[in-house]
Computed example of a mutant assay.
Amino acid sequence: MHVERFSISERFRGPPKSGNGGYVCGRIAAHLHGTARVRLKAPPPLEVELRLETSDQGARLFLDETLIGEAGSAQLDLEVPAVPTFEQAEASSHSFVGFHQHPFPGCFVCGPERELSDGLRIFPGATGKSGLVAAPWIPDHSLANAEGLIQPEFLWSALDCTGAFAILPLAQEVAIVLGELTASVPGSVSHGDQLVAVGWKLGVEGRKHFAGSAICNASGEVIARARAVWIEVPLSQWH
């Protein structure tokens, strides 16, 4: 078993006082190979030491003895819709609903309060094609490793919020939080690359919402894709 200890920086928050779900899922799945399914069991706390245990059977993240999330190998059968160009995604992002109504405006991925080189500033807006949302994304150099490649947990992060804005409830008193993310990240990108993030609705069952998302490069190649399960919660419990 491999054991790693780390803390989630305040920079990588989603809701207040909690790590961004996609980022945390990416950290939990960091030592697994191929497609992984990650289930979050509790809000991932910020700036405290966490323990990640990884074995051949999967991975589990703990705060002391409290299970925060767990991951295992999975299959992902997900067809990605036709992806708009970078310029088309730029135009779509102007209609991002989060500019006017956002449950977590300080989110690392999609928060409009975050500055360039701090948050990802991925703002998915309607494309006009069957509920598809899209956003442009140029990853910052602070997200890259020594070789200049974007670290996988930031691709997981981008997959997370992009899907959320394809299914976000309209009620102001309701938010959705990530319950499960199954992701395949076979490609790699460098900082400064022009990317397009897309999200689309897959269905709903009561308080559960299902979304697909993908990250593509300038050539339209799918770099990463994911299927997410989102849970409706009262917005008041996060503030």
Rank of each mutant, 00 (worst) to 15 (best):
M1G: 15
V3E: 08
V3Q: 12
V3C: 03
R5W: 04
F6D: 01
S7F: 14
E10W: 09
C25K: 11
C25Q: 12
G26M: 14
I28M: 13
H31I: 07
L32N: 08
A36V: 12
V38F: 07
V38I: 15
R39N: 12
L40S: 13
K41L: 14
P43N: 15
P43E: 05
E47H: 12
E49R: 12
L50A: 09
L50C: 12
E53L: 15
E53N: 14
Q57S: 05
R60W: 01
L63R: 15
D64Y: 02
E65Q: 08
T66K: 14
T66Y: 03
L67V: 15
G69R: 12
A71K: 09
S73E: 06
A74E: 09
L76Y: 07
L78T: 12
L78N: 03
V80H: 08
V80P: 11
P81W: 14
P81N: 01
A82L: 02
A82C: 11
P84W: 13
T85Y: 10
F86S: 06
F86L: 03
E87S: 10
E87M: 07
Q88E: 15
A89S: 09
S92D: 08
S93E: 11
S95H: 11
V97K: 13
F99P: 09
Q101T: 08
Q101S: 13
P105L: 10
V109G: 13
V109D: 03
C110I: 07
E113A: 09
L120C: 05
G128Q: 00
K129N: 04
G131F: 07
L132V: 06
V133Q: 02
A135D: 05
I138G: 02
A144D: 03
A144N: 05
A146E: 07
G148C: 11
G148D: 01
L149Y: 13
P152C: 00
S157K: 07
S157G: 10
C161T: 00
T162W: 03
T162Y: 04
T162F: 07
G163W: 09
F165P: 11
I167F: 06
P169D: 00
P169Y: 02
L178H: 09
G179K: 05
V185P: 00
V185R: 03
S188R: 15
S190T: 14
H191K: 07
Q194R: 15
V196G: 13
V198I: 08
L202G: 12
V204F: 00
V204R: 14
V204T: 06
E205D: 15
G206I: 06
R207G: 00
H209Q: 10
H209F: 10
N217V: 12
A218Q: 07
S219W: 02
E221A: 06
V222D: 01
V222A: 02
A224R: 01
A224D: 01
A224Q: 01
A224S: 06
A226C: 06
A226L: 03
R227K: 15
I231L: 06
E232L: 10
E232Q: 08
V233M: 15
V233P: 01
P234N: 02
W238F: 11
